[in-house]
Design a protein around this nucleic acid. Structure first.
Lengths: 101, 101
DNA sequence: TCATTTCGTAAGTCATGACTTACCCATATA
DNA sequence: TATATGGGTAAGTCATGACTTACGAAATGA
């Protein structure tokens, strides 16, 4: 659930493809694996990493597992970069003022 | 400069420490390496990855190289998660309406 | 109960990349 | 010129982790 876990989860192309597939709505594991160039077990492993990172959530529906995006986990990343961007702008402003003086 | 490069850059703990060090302002390579538990060449390698990803920028100052955050690159990530978060919320709303019907 | 579907997990392989040391080049200063 | 400072690059080592196949377990339907 740390930032490190979230970044690491999204760094792997295949795992990011899994993440992006859920963008339009919730899907079962087989639905996610369809079209991807890796085996279904590989997709299961990626889903576990994404779930442990707090980026996706799981629901049982009979024999299926339905995965969906975790809005809270995603908003953490959004807020992180929002603050970071603000800090970067502040640092830039200070560098300009330092030049003026 | 792709998203993949940015995420991969931030996935490595040491490299994220380098990135975080620039949060307060621009620093030389030796200043960045100070305090970190890796060698200076390792820091140079991390800075190259961050620069290629568009997350930091470089300026020469005599014999020194001064690194700073790249606000444009960071804003790309901010925007990415902003949109993603919106999509996740929309998907959630649709799932509720589907239940009502 | 038996078969099917869906999916997670175990174990093993193999490539990637994060580190190291050694080296080299460029800039400033005596 | 030397000499020191700052830092990028090369090459090699080693651990990590992204895959695979094989297997097992839970839920449904016949």
């Amino acid at each position: 659930m740390t930032y490190e876990m979230k970044f690491e989860a999204l760094a792997v192309p295949t795992r990011r493809a899994v993440f992006e597939k859920l963008r339009a709505g919730a899907l079962s594991v087989n639905e996610i694996a369809g079209g991807l160039p890796v085996s279904r077990p590989a997709v299961s492993q990626h889903l576990k990493v994404l779930k442990d990172a707090g980026l996706v959530a799981e629901r049982r529906d009979g024999v299926k597992r339905i995965y969906r995006l975790d809005t809270d986990g995603i908003s953490e990343l959004r807020d992180y970069f929002d603050r970071f961007w603000g800090d970067a702008l502040d640092a830039y402003k200070r560098s300009l003022e330092a030049k003026d003086a």
